[in-house]
Nucleic acid binder design. Structure first.
Lengths: 125, 125
DNA sequence: TTAACCCCTGACCTATACGTCAAAGGCAAG
DNA sequence: CTTGCCTTTGACGTATAGGTCAGGGGTTAA
C-alpha cells in the first residue's frame, strides 16, 4: 500500500501521514526500491487512533509524549472505559488536557460576559 | 512625547504602538525633524481604548473594521451601557464576537466531555 | 512510448499580537 | 566628546496542523 491509499483508508491525506511521521507519531515505514513509503493495515489502524485522539482535542505534542504507548491502543477500537494500566500515560495526558480545556472555557466565558456587559446585553441567554 | 513614553503611559510597549499603526488602528503620528514619532495625550487615550477592546477578546481585524468610529470612544472611559448610536458599529462587531465566543465555548465543552467519557471520568464535576 | 497519475523532498503559507534582534542614527548629561 | 539610552526600519520567531506549490522522478495501462 502506498501513501495515497493508506491515507485514504485512514480518512486523511498523504501530507498528513508524512507530517505524523516527521512529528514522531508514526515510525518511518519501509520504502520500496524506488524510495516510496509502504504501509500495511496496522499502520492504517494506528493513523485512525491518532486522528481520533487529535479530534478529541489532544495535540500532536501530547501524542508524541506517549507515542510508545499509542500502539497499545491499536485494534478495532480504543479500550472501552479505563482498561487498567493499559494506557495510563495517555490517561494522564487526557486529564491534563481536560483541565486545560476547563481553564480555557472559563476564560472565554469571562470574556463573553465582559463583552456582553460592555454593550449592555443580558449576560447568558 | 516620544514612543517609549507614550507606550508606557498607555501600559504597553513601543513595538505594540508601531504594530497598531501598521495595522491601521492608529493614524501615523507626526514625526520630529529626525524622523521620530511624536504622540500626545489623545493618542495615548486612543491606545488605551484599543487595548481595552483587545483585552475583551476583539481582534485587531475587528477594530480595523471600525477604526474610524474608534475615536468616538476616546475620553476617560468607554460609554457606560449602550449610549445610543454612539458606537453602533463596534456594538455589532462585539455582538458577532460574542456569538463566536459562544460557539467556541460550546465546541470546547463538547471536546471536554468527549475526552472525559473516553477516560471514564465523571462528566462535569 | 507516452499519457495520466502517483510519489519524493523542501520551502513557504495560513491567523494572532506582538517579541526579539540587528544595524544605524538621535538625544541629553557629564 | 563620549557614554548610554532611545529611536528608526526590516526581518525573523512564536504555536497548530497541516495545505499548497515547485521541480523532479516512479508506475501503470493503452
Amino acid at each position: 500500500m502506498r501513501i495515497g491509499d493508506a491515507a485514504a483508508a485512514a480518512g486523511t491525506t498523504p501530507r498528513a501521514l508524512r507530517f505524523y511521521e516527521q512529528s514522531g507519531l508514526l515510525s518511518p515505514p519501509r520504502r520500496s526500491v524506488a524510495g516510496q513509503r509502504e504501509y500495511d493495515r496496522r499502520d492504517v489502524a494506528r493513523v485512525r487512533v491518532i486522528r481520533e485522539l487529535l479530534s478529541l482535542g489532544l495535540t500532536v505534542a501530547d501524542l508524541r509524549h506517549c507515542a510508545d504507548r499509542l500502539d497499545l491502543l491499536e485494534g478495532d477500537a480504543l479500550p472501552p472505559y479505563g482498561e487498567p494500566g493499559v494506557c495510563a500515560k495517555p490517561d494522564g495526558i487526557a486529564r491534563r488536557r481536560i483541565a486545560a480545556l476547563d481553564e480555557e472555557i472559563t476564560r472565554l466565558a469571562r470574556l463573553r460576559d465582559g463583552l456582553a456587559a460592555r454593550i449592555g446585553n443580558d449576560v447568558r441567554e
